[in-house]
Nucleic acid binder design. Structure first.
Lengths: 214, 214
DNA sequence: CGGGTTCCATACACCCCTGTATGTATCGCG
DNA sequence: CGCGATACATACAGGGGTGTATGGAACCCG
């Protein structure tokens, strides 16, 4: 709701611009899915008439294109970047975990919404598929640089990424303490190695400092 | 399309019954999602008027309930059954793989469609969540009976199940030969153990005999 | 101050979907 | 034969959504 701050409750904040419509559309996309992103509903939400929308956008499709562009700009490359900086295996994997829990760097709800959308829009599907491919590839490359055979690296990359996707997709919510208890088990399963206690504690401490929400 | 066989091209195959509508609705659900399951569209598909539908069903919601019941009847328990019969670890895990590739036992497209649907219908969400919980629990229990600690068993169950869910959700399609090459890597990652060559070959031979499609 | 630009309101045309009420054809069956 | 029940057709009421055409209010600016 903070996304509508420019207008909102104030009587007559000057005017809406293109980005206001996109911001509103993004929240609706995340909350209720792409089918709920309708000109009429957004107008009601922004408390203007549809006339306004059709001044800023050529059509609903134009808005949807803008949404996809926004997703690309936000969620692309975040995971890849996390890995390229890492020196050791554990550092990289833990940093990946960190990205996935840090919703300021990676927005899982938006990612999920776009993914749902993509299942019934071929154009979107292509974008998402390519992005997924990039992510898995970069994780696999990371494993390879740390001594894993190509096939094993690829499969481990898939397993770790696919697991996380389902984590989001099923909307798993569990308390931080419980999640912390799973850390080394996940690490063991994903890498085949044990996680040093020092590394685990340092990671959990860092998470606690950053105060991750879920 | 074979689902509409009772009526179909023939001039005036006697009449439609409730199951004909459900069958048509299922194909539409799988192909185009729950929003496309509309009385009007189904009528066009079955080449009758909407009057027919409202004779067989009280409302569109009644049809949707029937669809959910159909999903429950088909896809529930299949995975659980696969594990309870297994004697050894590898036997159980490989049987799980077998179920996932055998679309006559487990229908991933229907599962995925219901899952998509569930994300915007709270009642459906509950059913799916409970089913997921059962599946993960039963896999975890299987790991435990083969010597894994409870936490590790649970995480490995999650990882193996979540990975497979994403496999479906992303619609990964790869040739059988390629997939066969991944088998032992998957097994290694999921269980932490190596898969005996004999077991692998036997499994692949069995798959080939059954002639799995994808 | 007057005119152009920006932003939005109003109104209309068009389409699609649900649900209901009612008419109608076919068939089983006593 | 005639009468219910079955299965569907027809027609109407109501609602929601997209676009478009056009009018008007506020504002910038020379």
């Amino acid at each position: 709701m903070t996304l509508l701050s420019t207008r909102d409750e104030d009587k007559r904040m000057p005017q809406l611009n293109r980005d206001d419509w996109i911001a509103a559309a993004l929240t609706v996309l995340v909350e209720e899915g792409i089918d709920a992103v309708q000109v009429t509903q957004l107008s009601r939400l922004l408390e203007v008439t549809r006339g306004s929308f059709y001044w800023h956008f050529k059509s609903r499709d134009a808005l949807l294109e803008a949404l996809l562009a926004e997703w690309r700009a936000r969620n692309t490359g975040v995971m890849v970047d996390a890995l390229t900086a890492a020196q050791t295996l554990s550092e990289g994997i833990l940093e990946l975990f960190a990205v996935w829990v840090d919703h300021t760097r990676f927005d899982p709800r938006l990612d999920q919404a776009v993914r749902d959308w993509s299942r019934r829009a071929d154009g979107v599907l292509k974008s998402v598929a390519q992005e997924d491919d990039n992510r898995v590839r970069s994780i696999a490359a990371f494993f390879e640089t740390h001594g894993y055979e190509p096939t094993e690296a690829f499969i481990r990359a898939r397993v770790i990424y696919f697991t996380q996707l389902s984590y989001y997709s099923l909307g798993v919510r569990e308390p931080l303490t419980e999640r912390a208890g799973f850390l080394s088990a996940y690490y063991q399963c994903f890498t085949g190695n044990s996680l040093g206690e020092g590394d685990a504690d340092a990671f959990l401490a860092r998470m606690a400092r950053n105060g991750v929400s879920t």
